[in-house]
Structures are given as C-alpha cells and as structure tokens.
C-alpha cells in the first residue's frame, strides 16, 4: 500500500466567522433565516467552539444568543409548569431553589454535566441541542484525515460500524433523557412561525441529523410539566465524579396513585444517536409499587433497547450490562427510601 498517511498538527485555532448579536427572538430568527445553512447559533459555546477548532463545524456566521431578551431565567410555578429560557446557564438552574425542590431529576442531570466552570458558561438549550459524539469524530482534523474521515464529517464511512448506513455518533446530553422522560415540551420559533413539540420528538436516530429542529428554527423555551404526584430521577455512568460526558444516562419518571405506579417512562441516554425509550420496561412497572421484584424485572427489560456501540469510553459490553444496574438504581430512586 502506498501513499499511506501523514499527520500534521498545529495549535488548534478557531476558523474565521462573522458574529451577529441579535437583541430579540424575532431578530435572531430573521438573521438565522437570512444567513442560510452556513450559519449556526451559539449559546454558551462550550461545545461549539472546541468543535470549530477541530473543524467539525465551520460556520461562516455565528448568531450569538447571549443578548437576546427573554431567553434567560425560570418563570411560572411548579404546579402550573415551570418555563425555562434556553439561555439559562446550567449554574443558574443548579442554584435555583424551585428547580431543585420541584424537579430533583432535572437538577441531578444538570448538576452532573461537566464541571462548575463549564456550567457557568453552558446553557440548558445548548445541552439539549448538544452535538452527538464519537471516538472517530471527536478528534482533530489531522487525526480524522489519517483515517480518511468519517461519515459524520468530511467522509463516507462510519468507523463504528463500517456497514452502517447512518452515523452512529452518540447523543451525549444529560438533560435530554430526563426531559424526554418527564415529558417536557420545547418551543421552537422561526422567521415563518412557531411550534411546540414534545422533547422526545426533537431527537432522531441519526448521528448527523440528530435534531428534528429545522436549521432555521430556534429553541426559545423549555416547558416542564406541572408537578402533581410524579417523581423523576437521573442516573449517569462515567469514570469520574466530574467532567465526563455520560457513557450511559438513565432518565426515569413515574406517576403514582398512592404507592402504586400509574404511569412510567424510562429514557436511556448515550447509547444511541437519540435518547432511547425503554417502553416495555416502563410498562412493566404500571400497577406495581416499585417493589424489588418489579424493579428487577424492569431493569432486565431495559437491557434490550440499550445497544451501545464502540463510540465512547468504556467497553460496549460493559455499558450494556450497566444499563440493568443503572435502571435499577434509578427506579430505586423513584421508590424513595
């Protein structure tokens, strides 16, 4: 074989781009529509900027949402449904006493993201729309060039599963499985209109086109369901107590009639390009009191939908096995002590 590789590295720098700073949602939506497909919005920038340095994305125009009015903060009451602006920083959510008391599941998910420093910059909207990740993608340009790139960026092959027709980069958002599980709704605005969708409808099982949100749409609000007799939790597998993206996330939700489960939802994060619903597992909980046998049965059922592939840290087999243990832990959280 001739012509085999070379590897050249130089300090990673941001590519050149134009930066726009709209003051209103309407302006932002218009700018996004005008700039076309080479534009991107930026919230906290904690994920986008490193990606730009690695040339995963090279937007010609960045629309910064930092100064847009009304996209920040928590409003409403838990009983009526809290509304959260997507530009609310993760730290602000963590420190919000109402969120912590009324939505411990969301609070746990937010608290588990990266580090305090990055949470100071990172936003809820940014985490919801977080780019998918992969061992073959989250490398610098030179590294990717040496493997002739991958399907997600600049190449044709998915190195995780070379036969795959879709990109298998993994959804790595901590809040996504939780928001899907509790049934949060997302408000989207574009220059031509607005709509509201369920959180789970935002995600697609395609590591490249992983959001159903159109490129000209902005996420403008996250609406949490009214709290009335349900509980939620989040469990996260990672190597360290900080920093790491999830290699498995479990968002679990159940509503109760006294001690008896009326309805339940379980979403698994970081096992697929989208949060994966473990519907059978959740269904098996209905009518139970989350007693140990019911929890064990549901955990076994959750094992099936989890199909981790070689795209993150930890061995895939290990991540699959841990699905059982982590779902069990989450359901124990829901049962309470």
């Amino acid at each position: 074989m001739a012509g085999s590789g070379e590897n050249k590295t130089a300090m990673m720098r941001l590519s050149k781009f134009k930066y726009l700073a709209p003051r209103s949602v309407n302006d932002a939506a218009k700018m996004l529509a005008d700039a076309g497909p080479t534009a991107s919005v930026v919230a906290g920038g904690t994920d986008l900027y490193p990606n730009m340095k690695r040339r995963h994305q090279t937007p010609k125009t960045l629309i910064g949402l930092r100064r847009v009015e009304g996209m920040r903060g928590v409003s409403g009451t838990p009983e009526g449904g809290l509304r959260i602006g997507p530009m609310t920083t993760l730290t602000a959510l963590e420190r919000n006493a109402t969120v912590k008391a009324a939505h411990p599941g969301l609070w746990k998910a937010v608290h588990s993201i990266s580090t305090p420093i990055l949470r100071n910059m990172g936003t809820l909207g940014g985490n919801i729309c977080l780019d998918t990740r992969c061992n073959y993608y989250d490398q610098n340009y030179e590294w990717r060039r040496a493997i002739n790139f991958c399907m997600k960026c600049d190449g044709d092959t998915c190195w995780v599963a070379p036969g795959s027709k879709v990109c298998l980069a993994v959804s790595s958002s901590d809040t996504a499985p939780l928001l899907c599980a509790i049934g949060a709704r997302l408000h989207l605005v574009s220059a031509t209109g607005e709509r509201e969708i369920a959180a789970h409808e935002l995600y697609r099982r395609d590591g490249i086109h992983f959001l159903s949100k159109r490129p000209d749409e902005l996420l403008t609000e996250i609406v949490l369901p009214a709290t009335n007799g349900w509980r939620s939790t989040y469990r996260k597998l990672r190597r360290r107590e900080a920093f790491d993206f999830p290699v498995l996330g479990v968002g679990a939700w159940a509503s109760f009639d006294g001690p008896v489960v009326k309805e339940a939802r379980i979403f698994l994060g970081a096992v697929s390009p989208a949060p994966v619903e473990a519907a059978e597992a959740a269904k098996s909980l209905v009518g139970t009191r989350l007693e140990p046998d019911a929890v064990a049965r549901a955990s076994d059922l959750a094992y099936g939908p989890a199909k981790p592939v070689d795209n993150t840290d930890f061995l895939t087999r290990w991540r699959k096995e841990m699905t059982k243990v982590y779902v069990k832990g989450a359901l124990e959280d829901l049962r309470g002590s």
Partner: peptide
C-alpha cells in the same frame, strides 16, 4: 484528549 484520557478531578 482530556475527555477520554482520564485523570482524577478534584471530585475524585
């Protein structure tokens, strides 16, 4: 990369 070459953090 420091995302997957894992050294202990303060929390560890």
């Amino acid at each position: 990369q420091l995302t997957n070459y894992i050294i202990p953090t303060t929390a560890d």
